[in-house]
Design a binder for these strands. Structure first.
Length: 312
DNA sequence: CACCATGTTCCTTG
DNA sequence: CCAAGGAACATGGT
């Protein structure tokens, strides 16, 4: 269940639940899910340690544990379909449980249907990551400099995790729509104004998603068939949050801003959704023009958008 | 059967 | 050597 906002909301939840609990037993059910450590050494190292903190860096979860004077970091990545939760010892294990850690109270479960996720004690995966999008380190001048050296399409470039972390396929589409930038535009062709605008749109997209996800009734304890995903929100009777996304998954549907049909194309083997009228490759001299501000207000005042997100 | 899916890494190509 | 493109990983939903 990744992308930065989903991981952030999960981390905040786990930080409330996990600290203080001790590791009683470690079962690596899917050996490949523990890399590059060996399953046996991984399990042995964690034994009898106590969870202290839960943090996030990019889409990684970082658990710190200690035993007497020994400290260690457990790093997790959810891949495409990973979930992490603490369940009751009596609850049944999920079909695709990858790593199970029995605690003094309850059970830590890392399940992963497609097994693209992983757990490790090796911190080197945290090297070479770009700045956090919601930190001061995400600075538009550096962002601009990085983009100028690239001939890749901007949408593809955003996914590389070196100029900025945490932006995945869905939020890349959303941020580019908000910024009015064609996902096919060559990175180096973006103007300084477009880059500055895109930087702010990425931050808005992330911040609003975290804020929204913090209030939805997510199944962070792994008890239901629902999960901790909130790209599409939750289906709860009449209260449907499905239309929260502005372009992703809306192929053929009318753009909320201009009614043109949303297009789906493939870039780097991933689906990209965009509005062919609102998102242009052309360089806009005045990206903050009155017309554009009016358009963004109209997007935000769409009944299914404003009611759920504008409150933040 | 066809096509789609939230991510990253490795290999090949130019 | 480098940048960019594509396959691979693995399973399930529609």
């Amino acid at each position: 269940m990744p992308e930065l906002p989903e991981v952030e909301v999960l981390v905040r939840h786990l930080q409330q639940v996990l600290p203080g609990r001790r590791v009683a037993k470690v079962s690596v059910i899917r050996e490949k899910s523990v890399r590059p450590n060996k399953a046996a050494e991984f399990a042995q190292a964690l034994l009898r340690h106590r969870f202290d903190t839960v943090q996030r860096r990019a889409k990684f979860l970082i658990f710190t544990l200690s035993a007497k004077s020994f400290e260690l970091s457990l790093i997790g990545h959810l891949g495409m379909t990973g979930r992490i939760y603490v369940q009751k010892k009596t609850a049944p294990l999920p079909k695709h449980a990858a790593v199970v850690i029995e605690l003094d109270r309850g059970r830590f479960v890392f399940e992963d249907t497609r097994y693209f996720g992983r757990m490790t004690l090796d911190r080197t995966c945290l090297n070479n990551l770009g700045p956090e999008p919601l930190s001061n380190e995400f600075e538009w001048k550096t962002f601009h400099r990085g983009l100028q050296h690239s001939g890749q399409a901007i949408k593809v470039r955003l996914l590389a995790q070196d100029l900025v972390v945490g932006v995945g396929n869905i939020y890349a589409c959303e941020a580019l729509f908000r910024a009015g930038i064609d996902p096919r535009a060559t990175s180096s062709q973006l103007t300084r104004e477009q880059v500055r605008h895109l930087q702010r749109c990425i931050q808005e997209t992330m911040a609003e998603a975290i804020a929204l996800g913090s209030t939805l009734p997510l199944d962070l304890a792994g008890t239901e068939s629902t999960d901790g995903l909130f790209y599409f929100g939750q289906k709860r009777g009449v209260n449907t949050y499905e239309e929260r996304l502005l372009v992703y998954g809306r192929k053929g549907e009318p753009c909320y801003r201009c009614q043109a049909k949303i297009q789906r194309i493939v870039q780097a083997a991933r689906g990209t959704f965009f509005c062919p009228r609102c998102q242009t490759r052309r360089i806009r001299n005045r990206p903050q023009s009155r017309g554009w501000r009016r358009a963004r207000r109209s997007v935000k005042s769409h009944p299914l958008w404003g009611s759920r997100v504008a409150q933040w």
